[in-house]
Nucleic acid binder design. Structure first.
Length: 394
DNA sequence: AGCCTAACCTAGCCTTGCAG
DNA sequence: CTGCAAGGCTAGGTTAGGCT
C-alpha cells in the first residue's frame, strides 16, 4: 500500500508570520544555528526577551519543525522537531525554514523524520539557489514538496517506530562515548593524576620517551587516487580519534616512504592550528601505511615509552591545558614545533605499566571498532526503515 | 509602504602551501 | 624544520529589488 502524495503547503504553514498576540516583553527561546545538532536535537535554548531579539530573526513556536536552509547545514541534517521548546514562542537564526503542521492532518514528529530523511539524502541540493559558496534551499522547495500522507494515526505509528530506531542509534553513540570515559578512568587509576603524581613516578619530558620525531611531507596532496592516502590535520579529531572521511593522496618514492609513512603504533601530533586545536594527538592504529602532511609530526618511542601512554596524557584534561598554555599570546594561529612538543613534562611510569595500559586501550579500541561498524549498519537500517515508512511498506 | 527573499558581505576560524 | 601569509570555508548579518 502506498500513501497519497500531498503538497506540503496544503497540510502545513511555511514560515508563518509573527502573530499579533505575541507580546514585546515576553520571554522567548532563542536558537542559533549552532544550537541545533546534526542529530536533530536542540542542544541549548537561550532565553531572551522578545524586545531584545533583533528584528529579522526567524519566528517559530512549540511543535513546529525547523530546517536549516543554508549549505552545508542543510545537507548535514540540521533540523529539529520543537516539541521540547521551553517557551511557546521562539526565535532563531534567519537560516531556518519553519514548517508548521496543521495538527489535524499532519503529525509534527512524522514531518520531522520525513524532512530529515530528505535532508540527509540531499534531495534538495539541486533545488538550492545562490552563489557558489552560499547556497540555500528556497521556500519553494518545501512549498512544492510532495509528501506521503497516511492517516494521522498511521503517521504517529511511523514516527514512534522511527523514534525508537533513532534512540537505539543514539544509545550506540553513547556507548562509544562511554568507552572513552572508561579509558580515561583507567589512565587515572594506573598512573594517577599527572598534576600531583601520587604514585611518585620519575618526572621527565616527552623527549625522554622518544626515539624519533619527524615532520611529514610538504608535497602537494591530491584529491585523485594515488599510491598512498595522506593524513592531514583534519583527520585527527580534538578528542584524539581518527576521521578518515576526507582523504587526499600522494605518491612517494622509496626514500620518502621511509620519512613520511606512518605505521601502526606511531603517534601523530598536529603542530600548527588555531590555539584551541594545536597539539591534536592520536595514535595510528591501522595496518596499512599512510603518508602524513608537513604540519603533522610522527613520533616513535624508545625503550622507555609507549605512544598510547603519551597520547592519553596529551589528550587528558591536563594535557590539553598544557598545550593551550604553551601557545599563549599568539593571535589567530598557534604553533608548537617538534622541540617544544618534546619539552613537555611528563611522568615516566615503568614501561611494563605503559604497555599494560596500551593493551587495555587496544582491546577497547577493537571493541569500539565493532560498535562503529554496527553504528554504520544502524544508520543504514534507519535509512531503509525511513524509506519503507514513507512509501507505505512499514 | 511594508514585507519577503535571493544575493551579497564579512568576521573569524581552519587549512594549506611555501619561504627562509 | 619551522613559522607564517594567504586563502578557503562557515555561520550569520545586510541589502536590493520585486511583490502584494
Amino acid at each position: 500500500m502506498s500513501w497519497p502524495l500531498v503538497k506540503l503547503a496544503e497540510v502545513a504553514t511555511l514560515n508563518p508570520r509573527l502573530p499579533k498576540w505575541v507580546n514585546e516583553s515576553q520571554e522567548v527561546s532563542f536558537l542559533a544555528m549552532a544550537s541545533v545538532s546534526e542529530e536533530g536535537k536542540i542542544l541549548n535554548q537561550e532565553r531572551r526577551i522578545l524586545a531584545e531579539t533583533k528584528k529579522g530573526f526567524t519566528y517559530f513556536e512549540r511543535n513546529d519543525v525547523i530546517v536549516a536552509k543554508i549549505t552545508p547545514c542543510f545537507e548535514n541534517g540540521k533540523a529539529a522537531f520543537l516539541d521540547r521548546l521551553e517557551t511557546q514562542v521562539g526565535f532563531g537564526s534567519t537560516e531556518f525554514h519553519v514548517l508548521r503542521p496543521n495538527s489535524d492532518e499532519l503529525d509534527g514528529k512524522y514531518l520531522f523524520y520525513l524532512i530529515w530523511n530528505i535532508q540527509l539524502r540531499s534531495v534538495g541540493e539541486r533545488n538550492m539557489t545562490g552563489s557558489a559558496g552560499q547556497k540555500r534551499v528556497p521556500t519553494s522547495f518545501f512549498k512544492d514538496l510532495k509528501i506521503p500522507l497516511p492517516p494521522l494515526e498511521e503517521q504517529k505509528r511511523i514516527a514512534t517506530i522511527l523514534g525508537k530506531a533513532d534512540d537505539i542509534r543514539r544509545k550506540r553513540k553513547q556507548a562509544i562515548q562511554l568507552a572513552d570515559d572508561f579509558l580515561r578512568s583507567v589512565f587515572l587509576e594506573m598512573f594517577g593524576d599527572p598534576v600531583t603524581n601520587p604514585k611518585g613516578f620519575p618526572i621527565g619530558t616527552i623527549r625522554d620517551l622518544v626515539e624519533s620525531a619527524n615532520y611529514g611531507s610538504s608535497g602537494k596532496a591530491s584529491v585523485e587516487l594515488k599510491e598512498f592516502p595522506i593524513l592531514r590535520m583534519g583527520n585527527i579529531t580534538y578528542k584524539g580519534h581518527w576521521d578518515f572521511s576526507s582523504l587526499k593522496y600522494i605518491d612517494l618514492n622509496e626514500k620518502e616512504q621511509q620519512k613520511y609513512l606512518v605505521r601502526k603504533g606511531d603517534l601523530l601530533f598536529n603542530r600548527t592550528n588555531s590555539k584551541d586545536l594545536v597539539g591534536k594527538t592520536a595514535v595510528y592504529r591501522e595496518d596499512e601505511p599512510m603518508a602524513i602532511a608537513g604540519y603533522l609530526i610522527r613520533v616513535r618511542t624508545n625503550e622507555l615509552g609507549n605512544t598510547e601512554y603519551i597520547s592519553s596524557y596529551l589528550n587528558s584534561k591536563h594535557g590539553k591545558q598544557t598545550l593551550l598554555n604553551m601557545c599563549k599570546s599568539i593571535v589567530g594561529m598557534a604553533n608548537i614545533n617538534a622541540q617544544e612538543m618534546q619539552n613537555i613534562k611528563i611522568c615516566i611510569p615503568p614501561k611494563a605499566l605503559q604497555d599494560k595500559f596500551a593493551d587495555i586501550v587496544d582491546e577497547v579500541v577493537q571493541r569500539t571498532k565493532k560498535m562503529t561498524t554496527g553504528e554504520e549498519q544502524l544508520n543504514e537500517l534507519f535509512s531503509s526503515l525511513s524509506q519503507k515508512a514513507f512509501s507505505g511498506q512499514l
